[in-house]
Write a protein that binds this DNA or RNA. Structure first.
Lengths: 182, 182
DNA sequence: ATATTAAAATAACAAGTGTTGTTAAAAAGT
DNA sequence: ACTTTTTAACAACACTTGTTATTTTAATAT
Protein backbone atom coordinates (compact mmCIF):
# COMPACT_ATOMS: atom_id res chain seq x y z
CA UNK A 1 0.00 0.00 0.00
CA UNK A 2 2.78 2.49 0.34
CA UNK A 3 3.79 4.56 -2.60
CA UNK A 4 6.87 3.17 -4.37
CA UNK A 5 9.99 5.28 -3.89
CA UNK A 6 11.15 7.04 -7.03
CA UNK A 7 14.21 8.77 -5.56
CA UNK A 8 16.68 6.31 -4.12
CA UNK A 9 19.57 6.82 -1.73
CA UNK A 10 21.88 5.78 -4.55
CA UNK A 11 20.54 8.50 -6.84
CA UNK A 12 20.99 11.15 -4.18
CA UNK A 13 24.47 10.05 -3.13
CA UNK A 14 25.76 9.62 -6.68
CA UNK A 15 24.46 13.03 -7.65
CA UNK A 16 25.93 14.70 -4.58
CA UNK A 17 29.25 12.97 -5.16
CA UNK A 18 29.41 14.10 -8.79
CA UNK A 19 28.62 17.59 -7.61
CA UNK A 20 31.46 17.51 -5.06
CA UNK A 21 33.75 16.16 -7.77
CA UNK A 22 32.85 18.72 -10.40
CA UNK A 23 31.88 21.82 -8.47
CA UNK A 24 33.46 21.37 -5.07
CA UNK A 25 32.31 19.94 -1.77
CA UNK A 26 31.21 23.34 -0.48
CA UNK A 27 28.68 23.60 -3.30
CA UNK A 28 26.83 20.46 -2.30
CA UNK A 29 23.61 21.97 -0.95
CA UNK A 30 20.20 20.43 -0.45
CA UNK A 31 18.60 22.50 -3.19
CA UNK A 32 21.35 21.97 -5.74
CA UNK A 33 21.40 18.23 -5.18
CA UNK A 34 17.64 17.94 -5.45
CA UNK A 35 17.57 20.08 -8.58
CA UNK A 36 20.20 17.84 -10.17
CA UNK A 37 18.30 14.71 -9.16
CA UNK A 38 15.12 16.26 -10.45
CA UNK A 39 13.09 16.17 -7.25
CA UNK A 40 12.28 18.34 -4.30
CA UNK A 41 14.49 18.59 -1.21
CA UNK A 42 12.19 16.24 0.65
CA UNK A 43 13.63 12.86 -0.45
CA UNK A 44 17.06 13.92 0.83
CA UNK A 45 15.72 14.29 4.34
CA UNK A 46 13.84 11.06 4.13
CA UNK A 47 17.07 9.18 3.39
CA UNK A 48 19.48 11.23 5.50
CA UNK A 49 18.77 12.69 8.90
CA UNK A 50 20.25 16.02 7.84
CA UNK A 51 22.72 17.49 5.37
CA UNK A 52 25.68 16.48 7.48
CA UNK A 53 24.62 12.88 7.02
CA UNK A 54 24.71 13.25 3.26
CA UNK A 55 28.03 15.10 3.36
CA UNK A 56 29.61 12.35 5.46
CA UNK A 57 28.38 9.80 2.91
CA UNK A 58 29.89 11.90 0.10
CA UNK A 59 33.17 12.05 1.99
CA UNK A 60 33.18 8.29 2.44
CA UNK A 61 32.50 7.79 -1.24
CA UNK A 62 35.32 10.18 -2.08
CA UNK A 63 37.81 8.31 0.07
CA UNK A 64 36.79 5.04 -1.54
CA UNK A 65 37.11 6.71 -4.94
CA UNK A 66 40.68 7.67 -4.11
CA UNK A 67 41.58 4.15 -3.01
CA UNK A 68 40.06 2.74 -6.20
CA UNK A 69 41.96 5.33 -8.22
CA UNK A 70 45.19 4.15 -6.66
CA UNK A 71 44.30 0.49 -7.16
CA UNK A 72 43.83 1.07 -10.90
CA UNK A 73 47.02 3.06 -11.15
CA UNK A 74 50.05 1.83 -13.07
CA UNK A 75 52.32 -0.03 -10.67
CA UNK A 76 55.66 0.11 -12.40
CA UNK A 77 57.70 2.47 -10.26
CA UNK A 78 61.18 1.26 -9.41
CA UNK A 79 61.26 2.87 -6.00
CA UNK A 80 59.29 2.61 -2.75
CA UNK A 81 56.48 5.19 -2.52
CA UNK A 82 56.83 5.80 -6.25
CA UNK A 83 53.48 4.39 -7.34
CA UNK A 84 51.60 5.72 -4.35
CA UNK A 85 53.22 9.13 -4.73
CA UNK A 86 52.65 9.37 -8.45
CA UNK A 87 49.02 8.35 -8.04
CA UNK A 88 48.60 10.89 -5.25
CA UNK A 89 50.01 13.77 -7.28
CA UNK A 90 48.11 12.70 -10.35
CA UNK A 91 44.91 12.53 -8.32
CA UNK A 92 45.51 16.06 -7.06
CA UNK A 93 45.93 17.28 -10.61
CA UNK A 94 42.94 15.45 -12.05
CA UNK A 95 40.50 15.66 -9.16
CA UNK A 96 41.29 18.92 -7.44
CA UNK A 97 37.98 19.16 -5.64
CA UNK A 98 38.13 15.66 -4.21
CA UNK A 99 41.78 16.03 -3.27
CA UNK A 100 41.02 19.21 -1.38
CA UNK A 101 38.19 17.53 0.45
CA UNK A 102 40.24 14.49 1.40
CA UNK A 103 43.65 15.98 2.14
CA UNK A 104 43.52 19.70 2.81
CA UNK A 105 40.06 20.64 4.04
CA UNK A 106 39.12 20.81 7.68
CA UNK A 107 36.00 18.72 7.29
CA UNK A 108 35.01 17.45 10.71
CA UNK A 109 34.80 13.74 9.95
CA UNK A 110 38.05 13.60 8.01
CA UNK A 111 40.41 10.67 8.49
CA UNK A 112 44.08 11.33 9.11
CA UNK A 113 46.24 11.37 6.01
CA UNK A 114 48.03 8.18 7.04
CA UNK A 115 44.80 6.33 7.77
CA UNK A 116 43.28 7.26 4.43
CA UNK A 117 46.43 6.53 2.43
CA UNK A 118 46.97 3.20 4.06
CA UNK A 119 43.42 2.07 3.30
CA UNK A 120 42.32 -1.50 3.88
CA UNK A 121 45.19 -2.93 1.87
CA UNK A 122 47.96 -1.35 3.95
CA UNK A 123 49.39 0.66 1.08
CA UNK A 124 51.81 2.57 3.26
CA UNK A 125 52.92 -0.38 5.33
CA UNK A 126 53.66 -2.30 2.15
CA UNK A 127 55.84 0.48 0.77
CA UNK A 128 57.67 0.89 4.06
CA UNK A 129 58.43 -2.82 4.07
CA UNK A 130 59.66 -2.56 0.52
CA UNK A 131 62.08 0.16 1.61
CA UNK A 132 63.21 -2.03 4.49
CA UNK A 133 63.94 -4.90 2.11
CA UNK A 134 66.21 -2.56 0.22
CA UNK A 135 68.38 -2.11 3.27
CA UNK A 136 67.04 1.30 4.23
CA UNK A 137 67.99 1.91 7.84
CA UNK A 138 65.05 4.21 8.72
CA UNK A 139 62.12 3.34 6.45
CA UNK A 140 59.59 5.28 8.55
CA UNK A 141 61.75 8.38 8.43
CA UNK A 142 62.16 7.89 4.70
CA UNK A 143 58.40 7.65 4.31
CA UNK A 144 57.95 10.86 6.26
CA UNK A 145 60.40 12.77 4.08
CA UNK A 146 59.11 11.29 0.85
CA UNK A 147 55.54 12.02 1.79
CA UNK A 148 56.20 15.60 2.81
CA UNK A 149 57.72 16.04 -0.63
CA UNK A 150 54.89 14.26 -2.42
CA UNK A 151 52.22 16.16 -0.51
CA UNK A 152 54.01 19.39 -1.32
CA UNK A 153 53.94 18.71 -5.04
CA UNK A 154 50.29 17.70 -4.88
CA UNK A 155 49.29 20.84 -2.98
CA UNK A 156 51.29 23.09 -5.27
CA UNK A 157 49.50 21.63 -8.25
CA UNK A 158 46.21 22.84 -6.73
CA UNK A 159 47.30 26.46 -6.94
CA UNK A 160 49.05 26.13 -10.28
CA UNK A 161 52.51 26.38 -8.74
CA UNK A 162 53.53 22.87 -9.82
CA UNK A 163 53.36 22.03 -13.47
CA UNK A 164 55.32 18.86 -14.18
CA UNK A 165 53.77 15.99 -16.09
CA UNK A 166 53.75 12.41 -14.88
CA UNK A 167 57.03 11.46 -16.54
CA UNK A 168 58.83 14.43 -15.03
CA UNK A 169 57.21 13.81 -11.67
CA UNK A 170 58.34 10.21 -11.80
CA UNK A 171 61.93 11.29 -12.38
CA UNK A 172 61.64 13.78 -9.57
CA UNK A 173 60.44 11.10 -7.17
CA UNK A 174 63.29 8.80 -8.17
CA UNK A 175 65.75 11.63 -7.57
CA UNK A 176 64.27 12.48 -4.19
CA UNK A 177 64.26 8.83 -3.17
CA UNK A 178 67.92 8.62 -4.10
CA UNK A 179 68.59 11.80 -2.14
CA UNK A 180 66.71 10.80 0.98
CA UNK A 181 67.64 7.13 1.18
CA UNK A 182 71.39 7.35 1.68
CA UNK B 1 30.71 71.57 6.94
CA UNK B 2 30.97 67.84 6.54
CA UNK B 3 30.10 65.61 9.42
CA UNK B 4 33.21 64.17 11.05
CA UNK B 5 33.65 60.51 10.18
CA UNK B 6 33.53 58.18 13.14
CA UNK B 7 34.22 54.93 11.28
CA UNK B 8 37.50 55.06 9.39
CA UNK B 9 38.86 52.85 6.65
CA UNK B 10 41.60 51.82 9.05
CA UNK B 11 39.08 50.62 11.63
CA UNK B 12 37.21 48.58 9.06
CA UNK B 13 40.30 47.04 7.48
CA UNK B 14 41.99 46.23 10.78
CA UNK B 15 38.84 44.61 12.10
CA UNK B 16 38.32 42.59 8.92
CA UNK B 17 41.95 41.50 8.94
CA UNK B 18 41.77 40.36 12.56
CA UNK B 19 38.63 38.48 11.67
CA UNK B 20 40.36 36.72 8.75
CA UNK B 21 43.29 35.93 11.03
CA UNK B 22 41.24 34.55 13.90
CA UNK B 23 38.13 33.12 12.29
CA UNK B 24 39.11 32.55 8.67
CA UNK B 25 38.81 34.56 5.48
CA UNK B 26 35.51 32.96 4.53
CA UNK B 27 33.93 34.34 7.70
CA UNK B 28 34.62 37.95 6.81
CA UNK B 29 31.10 39.18 5.99
CA UNK B 30 29.70 42.70 5.93
CA UNK B 31 27.51 42.15 8.94
CA UNK B 32 30.15 40.44 11.06
CA UNK B 33 32.73 43.13 10.34
CA UNK B 34 30.29 45.93 11.11
CA UNK B 35 29.19 44.23 14.31
CA UNK B 36 32.81 43.93 15.42
CA UNK B 37 33.49 47.55 14.53
CA UNK B 38 30.31 48.56 16.30
CA UNK B 39 28.50 50.23 13.44
CA UNK B 40 26.04 49.43 10.70
CA UNK B 41 27.04 47.90 7.39
CA UNK B 42 26.82 51.30 5.76
CA UNK B 43 30.34 52.66 6.47
CA UNK B 44 31.84 49.60 4.77
CA UNK B 45 30.14 50.49 1.51
CA UNK B 46 31.09 54.12 1.84
CA UNK B 47 34.77 53.19 2.03
CA UNK B 48 34.77 50.18 -0.31
CA UNK B 49 32.81 49.82 -3.48
CA UNK B 50 31.68 46.35 -2.50
CA UNK B 51 32.72 43.41 -0.34
CA UNK B 52 35.23 42.23 -2.88
CA UNK B 53 37.05 45.54 -2.44
CA UNK B 54 37.36 44.96 1.28
CA UNK B 55 38.42 41.35 0.79
CA UNK B 56 41.14 42.37 -1.63
CA UNK B 57 42.38 44.90 0.93
CA UNK B 58 42.39 42.17 3.58
CA UNK B 59 44.34 39.90 1.25
CA UNK B 60 46.91 42.63 0.60
CA UNK B 61 47.29 43.24 4.31
CA UNK B 62 47.73 39.52 4.88
CA UNK B 63 50.49 39.28 2.28
CA UNK B 64 52.27 42.26 3.85
CA UNK B 65 51.82 40.62 7.24
CA UNK B 66 53.58 37.51 5.96
CA UNK B 67 56.49 39.50 4.54
CA UNK B 68 56.84 41.38 7.84
CA UNK B 69 56.69 38.07 9.68
CA UNK B 70 59.58 36.78 7.61
CA UNK B 71 61.55 40.02 8.03
CA UNK B 72 61.34 39.69 11.81
CA UNK B 73 62.29 36.05 11.69
CA UNK B 74 65.56 34.71 13.04
CA UNK B 75 68.09 34.64 10.21
CA UNK B 76 70.63 32.15 11.46
CA UNK B 77 70.13 29.17 9.21
CA UNK B 78 73.30 27.70 7.78
CA UNK B 79 71.75 26.68 4.49
CA UNK B 80 70.05 28.41 1.56
CA UNK B 81 66.25 28.48 1.88
CA UNK B 82 66.63 27.60 5.56
CA UNK B 83 65.36 30.86 7.05
CA UNK B 84 62.69 31.36 4.46
CA UNK B 85 61.55 27.77 4.80
CA UNK B 86 61.51 27.77 8.56
CA UNK B 87 59.58 31.04 8.65
CA UNK B 88 57.13 29.64 6.09
CA UNK B 89 56.44 26.47 8.06
CA UNK B 90 56.27 28.39 11.32
CA UNK B 91 53.82 30.83 9.76
CA UNK B 92 51.64 27.95 8.62
CA UNK B 93 51.61 26.56 12.16
CA UNK B 94 50.94 29.87 13.91
CA UNK B 95 48.65 31.56 11.41
CA UNK B 96 46.70 28.77 9.77
CA UNK B 97 43.93 31.00 8.49
CA UNK B 98 46.25 33.51 6.86
CA UNK B 99 48.45 30.78 5.43
CA UNK B 100 45.46 29.12 3.86
CA UNK B 101 44.33 32.40 2.34
CA UNK B 102 47.77 33.22 0.95
CA UNK B 103 49.05 29.85 -0.19
CA UNK B 104 46.27 27.28 -0.63
CA UNK B 105 43.01 29.09 -1.29
CA UNK B 106 41.70 29.82 -4.75
CA UNK B 107 40.99 33.47 -4.02
CA UNK B 108 40.68 35.27 -7.35
CA UNK B 109 43.19 38.04 -6.77
CA UNK B 110 45.87 35.76 -5.35
CA UNK B 111 49.49 36.29 -6.33
CA UNK B 112 51.55 33.31 -7.42
CA UNK B 113 53.51 31.60 -4.67
CA UNK B 114 56.81 32.73 -6.13
CA UNK B 115 55.70 36.34 -6.47
CA UNK B 116 54.46 36.52 -2.91
CA UNK B 117 57.50 34.76 -1.44
CA UNK B 118 59.93 36.89 -3.31
CA UNK B 119 58.31 40.11 -2.11
CA UNK B 120 59.90 43.48 -2.71
CA UNK B 121 63.21 42.42 -1.23
CA UNK B 122 63.78 39.50 -3.61
CA UNK B 123 63.82 36.88 -0.87
CA UNK B 124 63.90 33.97 -3.27
CA UNK B 125 66.43 35.46 -5.67
CA UNK B 126 68.75 36.14 -2.75
CA UNK B 127 68.57 32.55 -1.54
CA UNK B 128 69.10 31.19 -5.03
CA UNK B 129 72.21 33.35 -5.38
CA UNK B 130 73.42 32.09 -2.04
CA UNK B 131 73.09 28.55 -3.31
CA UNK B 132 74.97 29.52 -6.45
CA UNK B 133 77.83 30.92 -4.39
CA UNK B 134 78.09 27.57 -2.71
CA UNK B 135 78.87 25.94 -6.03
CA UNK B 136 75.45 24.46 -6.56
CA UNK B 137 75.14 23.56 -10.23
CA UNK B 138 71.35 23.98 -10.53
CA UNK B 139 70.20 26.49 -7.91
CA UNK B 140 66.78 26.97 -9.49
CA UNK B 141 66.20 23.24 -9.51
CA UNK B 142 67.37 23.08 -5.93
CA UNK B 143 64.92 25.82 -4.99
CA UNK B 144 62.11 23.92 -6.65
CA UNK B 145 62.85 20.73 -4.75
CA UNK B 146 63.44 22.48 -1.47
CA UNK B 147 60.25 24.47 -1.81
CA UNK B 148 58.11 21.50 -2.71
CA UNK B 149 59.39 19.91 0.48
CA UNK B 150 58.86 23.05 2.56
CA UNK B 151 55.38 23.64 1.18
CA UNK B 152 54.54 20.02 1.91
CA UNK B 153 55.51 20.34 5.55
CA UNK B 154 53.59 23.60 5.88
CA UNK B 155 50.43 22.13 4.33
CA UNK B 156 50.63 18.98 6.43
CA UNK B 157 50.80 21.10 9.55
CA UNK B 158 47.42 22.60 8.58
CA UNK B 159 45.72 19.23 8.85
CA UNK B 160 47.67 18.05 11.87
CA UNK B 161 49.75 15.58 9.86
CA UNK B 162 53.04 17.34 10.57
CA UNK B 163 54.03 17.84 14.15
CA UNK B 164 57.72 18.73 14.38
CA UNK B 165 58.87 21.76 16.35
CA UNK B 166 61.16 24.43 14.91
CA UNK B 167 64.37 22.75 16.02
CA UNK B 168 63.37 19.45 14.43
CA UNK B 169 62.16 21.23 11.33
CA UNK B 170 65.48 23.03 11.08
CA UNK B 171 67.36 19.74 11.18
CA UNK B 172 65.02 18.31 8.59
CA UNK B 173 65.69 21.22 6.25
CA UNK B 174 69.43 20.86 6.68
CA UNK B 175 69.13 17.17 5.89
CA UNK B 176 66.99 17.78 2.83
CA UNK B 177 69.36 20.47 1.61
CA UNK B 178 72.24 18.05 1.98
CA UNK B 179 70.23 15.42 0.12
CA UNK B 180 69.13 17.63 -2.73
CA UNK B 181 72.30 19.64 -3.27
CA UNK B 182 74.73 16.99 -4.34
C1' DA C 1 -14.10 1.39 -5.33
C1' DT C 2 -12.22 2.69 -1.15
C1' DA C 3 -9.23 3.06 2.69
C1' DT C 4 -4.51 2.95 4.08
C1' DT C 5 0.07 4.49 4.01
C1' DA C 6 4.37 6.03 2.62
C1' DA C 7 6.70 9.14 -0.84
C1' DA C 8 7.11 13.36 -2.98
C1' DA C 9 5.84 18.10 -3.84
C1' DT C 10 4.71 22.55 -2.25
C1' DA C 11 5.50 26.00 0.45
C1' DA C 12 7.01 28.06 4.25
C1' DC C 13 10.23 29.44 8.31
C1' DA C 14 14.28 31.26 10.26
C1' DA C 15 18.72 32.58 9.67
C1' DG C 16 22.18 34.12 6.89
C1' DT C 17 24.33 36.81 2.67
C1' DG C 18 25.43 41.40 -0.24
C1' DT C 19 23.47 45.58 -1.28
C1' DT C 20 20.67 49.88 -1.45
C1' DG C 21 17.08 53.47 -0.78
C1' DT C 22 15.70 56.70 2.60
C1' DT C 23 16.21 59.32 6.61
C1' DA C 24 18.38 61.28 10.68
C1' DA C 25 22.32 63.63 12.53
C1' DA C 26 26.10 66.58 12.76
C1' DA C 27 29.56 69.95 11.32
C1' DA C 28 30.56 74.26 9.09
C1' DG C 29 29.99 78.17 5.85
C1' DT C 30 26.79 81.89 5.05
C1' DA D 1 19.66 80.96 12.52
C1' DC D 2 19.78 78.67 8.18
C1' DT D 3 21.40 75.98 4.58
C1' DT D 4 24.56 72.76 2.69
C1' DT D 5 26.98 68.55 2.77
C1' DT D 6 28.72 64.37 4.45
C1' DT D 7 28.24 60.38 7.61
C1' DA D 8 25.78 56.78 9.52
C1' DA D 9 21.73 54.23 10.84
C1' DC D 10 17.52 51.93 9.80
C1' DA D 11 15.04 49.13 7.20
C1' DA D 12 14.23 46.70 3.44
C1' DC D 13 15.09 43.85 -0.96
C1' DA D 14 16.42 39.81 -3.20
C1' DC D 15 18.85 35.97 -2.65
C1' DT D 16 20.74 31.43 -0.45
C1' DT D 17 21.07 28.26 3.21
C1' DG D 18 19.05 24.02 6.23
C1' DT D 19 14.95 22.30 7.74
C1' DT D 20 10.03 21.18 8.42
C1' DA D 21 4.78 21.33 8.31
C1' DT D 22 1.29 20.48 5.16
C1' DT D 23 -0.69 18.78 1.24
C1' DT D 24 -0.89 15.95 -2.76
C1' DT D 25 0.08 11.69 -5.13
C1' DA D 26 0.52 6.90 -5.98
C1' DA D 27 0.49 2.02 -4.87
C1' DT D 28 -1.69 -1.67 -2.71
C1' DA D 29 -4.87 -4.39 0.52
C1' DT D 30 -9.38 -4.82 1.48
Amino acid sequence: MPRKESVTEEMILNTAFEMAKNEGFENVTARKVSAAVGCSTQPIFRVYENMEGLLVAVYEKASQYFLDYFKEYDKSSLIPFGDLGLAYISFAKEEKNLFKLLFVSDFQKKKSMYELLNGNDGNVVREINLARQRNCKDPEGLFMKMWIFIHGAACMSLTGDYDLDNAQTSELLVASYAAFSR
